[in-house]
Design a protein around this nucleic acid. Structure first.
Lengths: 168, 168
DNA sequence: CGGGAATAGTTGATATATCCACCATGTTGC
DNA sequence: GCAACATGGTGGATATATCAACTATTCCCG
């Protein structure tokens, strides 16, 4: 067992504040920690096996979900919940490496499309199986279908309470 | 409702790979997205209300969990699941701002202690109520006790399958 | 039409994270 | 002892994230 008590928490940090009770604390700590470790693991796996960062991967997945693997920058921002500046920097870096192209948009002359290149698609295709295997091994494979359903419902409930944009 | 279908996924990215099924996909997407948005929200709230970054906050909480608010750097790394280099950089920055002190360790002359200063404790005390309120409002308040229990158990199960160090 | 507000995207400064090489010290086994 | 290795921590280079301007266009409304 992981010793949850070693995970730094939010309880009793300072006097005179009403903290989380034991159940709340346990769920919050465990979840935070799970994500910290899991994302780290997945990011390292992606980088070392496929030479893609996690953000690279997410962008390529989002693009290839679309016909022609093409999206406007602002759509990408909305889809990923990133702010526009982050998208812009990320896409520029990926374009330098040849994973995507930026193309001016005829219909709205402010805008630009991002398109996954052949290279980008090949890199994604090479990265995806290992990544999915890791997700299954570390996350999905450790949970029951019922747990997955509860998690999905809970996460959606939390998402409903947050404003949509992610803050850009 | 959040439209989960707009969240980029892991399904059908490329042919000939066995992807996640619908239930797995839903849980994985929703959870990833919840964390992205929630952490962003909490980090912004901390920064704007209290002038602390999320990592600053975590370090101060970890320290003040201990008698004398004192820890070795490597303990901090283990507790937070960070690699040692990250801890070193983070602590240096915090020391520059007067939130913590670094002190040489007599018993092991390689080592050093990190100690929260009076300022660090005051900043934490000022930050904690707002942060906890946000956690309650955005996360805990949206979930039932049963959901919290399932989440805690699930997160612990996943943590058990990951190596303890976080990769440092 | 004209002007203000909103939107799309860029850029640069700064903060943070990761990777890797490095130094000093401690530990082990012979 | 001392050589080989492990551990604790630092530092620089690079990658990534965030924030606050800033430009260019489009939208809205009179």
């Amino acid at each position: 067992m992981v010793d949850i008590s070693t995970i730094p928490g939010t309880m009793k940090v300072v006097e005179d504040v009403r903290w989380l009770d034991e159940r709340e604390e346990r769920a919050w700590r465990a979840l935070q920690f799970m994500h910290l470790r899991l994302d780290g693991q997945l990011a390292r796996q992606l980088t070392s096996d496929a030479g893609l960062s996690y953000p690279d991967y997410l962008v390529l997945v989002a693009l290839t979900d679309r016909p022609e693997a093409r999206m406007r920058l602002f759509e990408l921002a909305k889809t990923l919940g990133w702010e526009k500046s982050r998208v812009s920097h990320q896409v520029s870096r990926m374009a330098e490496r040849g994973l995507v192209n930026k193309e001016k948009c005829g219909a709205d002359r402010r805008g630009a499309h991002v398109v996954a290149t052949g290279l980008g698609r090949r890199e994604l295709a090479a990265a995806a199986p290992g990544h999915l295997q890791a997700v299954r091994r570390h996350f999905i494979g450790r949970l029951t279908p019922e747990q997955l359903d509860v998690i999905a419902a809970a996460a959606e409930a939390v998402l409903d309470g947050l404003d949509g944009t992610g803050g850009g």
